[in-house]
Design a binder for these strands. Structure first.
Length: 477
DNA sequence: TGAAATGTTGGGGCG
DNA sequence: ACGCCCCAACATTTC
């Protein structure tokens, strides 16, 4: 009886899982394993919200495997030692996994693969995480793309070659083993202090929840995605980002769902597929420019003297900046582990371009609080906003929180939901309470500086200030 | 996947 | 009927 190990990492699904399929095809018995080795992620080991999600997703995967006659083995790292030990215990002759693209994961996997091979084991990695692997997309001159549109155009030229997702196996078997497994609870992923009620209410981690989210989205929101995706007050987005991050869903499944719902394309489906493209682009950049996790791609930005102000940073983190749309976003993040992407850009712009604080401060906070925290997407997003990344927003692109709020939360529903202390203000002042006359504030029960903060910075002045600071970069180019 | 300043155009009020 | 002014709406430029 031949035995194959499937090493689950961030591909916590049974559908469209190439490593699982390959293992099943090549051996009589498949042993699924998850290895807990956060130290192997280096400085970007999962934050609190990610760990919360992982706990639940692993629990879900274990249940799904049980249903199919299999049984998940959980072990602690180091990964290589754990795999060798497991191979010894099971007599496995091969190890299969799906590739990751973070620098630390690439280095670890490379070392693991060569060590396994050196000990006579077969080690095989697959693509289960991307539509286009980073080294397959390049400019005419053979360089990586640094601008999204031409990158995506090149990708789309071969999009028809992407294989349709494969169905999950009905039965996997092999679960009768008596292999030791660390109880999930012992991994200490779930919070000890119960701050996670809001997360639990908002999300269903695991493959069934992922499929449900994708299905709900394609049914209810895909057609209007082009129009509604920028609206934080509307359920206009897919909310599949954490599912994609943990691989409870493959991008191929998302692509296929969009095409199935709108065979001819359609603006909603096209806009959605384009967003999948940004995810691809983020991974492309991270693969080719791994130093960007903590260093600006545009080297001139290393000279910038970002401000440090722990009180202001704390106000930003807690949703107490005095800008309703910013505070609404930061509170949505804290409460649900997620923030609408339009609002992410607004809060990031305020931090980096009005408060002029280092984008890494924001990246770290997002990393700890987002359930979809993803090194590729987070790095691209923050460098884009700060203006120091590939295809970045130019330094003079500063979001005006009031205008953005007017445009994308016209009904004030988003603000009223997350900033209840402003809910009674008339529409006119909800996005800019500092401009409201005293009697309107009093009537709404708002006392500036007491029930709701005064703005932490003056947007006009700080914008001009930031532009001056950035100007020095241009001069030194 | 900006905002603000500046420029242009065209309709309507009015003498 | 005409020119003038105002200004909203839109386009372009600049940061």
């Amino acid at each position: 009886m031949s035995v194959a190990i499937v090493w689950f990492r961030r591909d916590l699904r049974l559908t469209d899982n190439p490593a699982l399929e390959e293992a099943r095809a090549s051996a009589d018995v498949v042993v699924p394993v998850y290895l807990h080795a956060p130290e192997e992620d280096g400085r970007w080991s999962p934050g609190a919200a990610s760990r919360w999600w992982l706990h639940r997703s692993l629990s879900s995967l274990a249940a799904d495997l049980d249903q199919r006659g299999s049984r998940l083995v959980i072990r602690r790292g180091p990964s290589l030692e754990a795999l060798l030990q497991l191979a010894k215990e099971t007599g496995a002759t091969s190890v299969h996994w799906n590739r990751l693209y973070e620098p630390a994961a690439i280095a670890r996997d490379r070392a693991v693969k060569s060590a396994l091979v050196a000990r006579g084991l077969h080690a095989a990695s697959q693509n289960g995480h991307l539509l286009f692997e980073p080294w397959t997309v390049q400019t005419r001159s053979g360089d990586p793309y640094r601008v999204f549109t031409p990158f995506w155009k090149t990708c789309m030229a071969s999009v028809d070659g992407i294989a349709p997702p494969r169905a999950a196996p009905r039965r996997i078997g092999g679960g009768e083993h008596a292999l030791a497994s660390v109880p999930l609870e012992e991994l200490d992923l779930a919070p000890r202090i119960r701050w996670d009620a809001g997360l639990a209410e908002a999300w269903q981690p695991g493959e069934p929840g992922a499929l449900k989210a994708l299905d709900t989205f394609t049914r209810d929101a895909l057609a209007d995605y082009g129009r509604d995706r920028d609206r934080p007050d509307v359920a206009g987005t897919s909310r599949i980002s954490p599912h994609l991050h943990f691989g409870e869903l493959s991008p191929r499944q998302a692509l296929a769902a969009a095409r199935q719902a709108a065979p001819g394309g359609g603006t909603g489906a096209d806009a959605f597929v384009r967003e999948l493209g940004w995810r691809e682009f983020a991974h492309h950049l991270l693969y080719h420019y791994p130093h960007t996790v903590d260093t600006p791609l545009d080297g001139r930005f290393e000279r910038l003297d970002w401000r440090r102000d722990t009180a202001q940073l704390a106000a930003w983190q807690r949703g107490l900046t005095g800008y309703p749309v910013v505070d609404a976003g930061m509170r949505e993040l804290w409460h649900t582990g997620w923030m609408h992407n339009r609002v992410r850009m607004v809060v990031a712009s305020l931090l980096t371009k009005n408060l002029f604080m280092h984008w890494l401060e924001g990246a770290r906070w997002f990393w700890d609080t987002l359930v979809d925290a993803d090194l590729a997407n987070n790095t691209l997003g923050w460098q884009w906003t700060a203006g120091c990344g590939a295809d970045a927003a130019p330094y003079y692109r500063v979001f005006n929180p009031v205008l953005q709020a007017e445009k994308f939360d016209p009904g004030r529903h988003y603000i009223r939901r997350w900033i209840p202390e402003l809910a009674a203000l008339p529409d006119r002042w909800v996005h800019c309470p500092w401009a409201a006359p005293a009697d309107a504030l009093a009537a709404a029960g708002v006392t500036p500086g007491v029930t709701y903060p005064e703005p932490i910075v003056d947007p006009r002045g700080s914008r001009d200030d930031a532009l001056r600071r950035f100007e020095a970069l241009k001069a030194g180019a």
